[in-house]
Design a protein around this nucleic acid. Structure first.
Lengths: 157, 157
DNA sequence: TTTATATAATTCGTAACACAAATTATTAGC
DNA sequence: GCTAATAATTTGTGTTACGAATTATATAAA
């Protein structure tokens, strides 16, 4: 295979990876009956609750005004609870309800699981090839310093 | 480095790649003053115009109703023209205006260019490592059969 | 201690997607 | 010619996303 052709193949494979992940993400939305941002908020709450609205906005890289709307809808679906903080009565603590926790726990983490299992199943030599290849791609894109964000969330806004 | 740690590293690198690409895409939006879907529509028109509204909707995987709105806004910015087809007077042919073509031509294709140049600059042996690594990731995600879509557009809806 | 400033969440107003359903105009099939 | 189907659009609804203004509370300064 010519060099040019091999380069095309690499780029096409990267596109396939993108597409696969965004498809999985869409399926998670369909199965949960939630939108992407709503699911994203739940996942943050699952690992960080109880947290304030401002902290959730921070972690989602969104304005507080936007997050308030998302939380409104999650609260209406009884997946998230608001509690006025007693320590600082300006603040509101967000938490998952039992239903919210159940939903997010059984929400499919298809991509994550596929990647982990697939990589674990690889012979050590192959895994090192994958690792080296990814490192090169990161270097080419100048992305070494980026703090890695959850995959689905690069797909949002 | 332990195997588990190496797997974590691979996944984090994939996240960095995603993040870098979505950042580039956001910059393109900022520089062009257009939204993601608007830019995407222009890029399709750049390669396929003149096409009908229904065909544009097809290629964007969106409903016709949605595309009509996007085209409305692009027409208002004088980047796209609507022409009622003479052959089939139900249909409308979309095309880029001179301004539209200029805009899309100088719209940054940062990701594509970085990837191409970076991969071209690699020694053959390294390129093959990258290619092999990407192929493994595609296999793990079961994405071999996916028709590769432009990178940015997996980031949209 | 009062005053000023900052902070936390919310509301309000605006814009863009995104879709289903209904509508209008036109074409194609019988 | 009458009926079906098709192409684009309009209408109505919901979600994200933000800046600016608002309300309530906390902190700092005087």
């Amino acid at each position: 295979m010519g060099k040019h052709q091999e380069i095309e193949e690499v780029i096409n494979d990267l596109r396939r990876i993108f597409q696969a992940i965004s498809q999985h993400s869409r399926e998670a939305e369909r199965e949960s009956g939630l939108t992407g941002p709503q699911l994203w908020a739940l996942q943050i709450l699952d690992t960080a609750a109880p947290i304030r609205v401002s902290e959730l906005a921070n972690q989602m890289y969104l304005s507080a005004a936007t997050v308030v709307g998302i939380v409104d809808r999650l609260e209406a679906k009884q997946l998230v609870s608001r509690t006025r903080s007693t320590a600082d009565r300006r603040a509101v603590d967000l938490d998952l309800t039992r239903q919210g926790r159940e939903l997010v726990d059984r929400a499919p983490k298809v991509t994550q699981v596929m990647l982990l299992k697939g990589l674990e199943a690889l012979p050590d030599a192959d895994l090192e090839v994958v690792a080296a290849g990814m490192k090169q791609m990161v270097r080419i894109l100048g992305a070494e310093a980026l703090v890695p964000q959850p995959l689905q969330h690069s797909l949002q806004g």
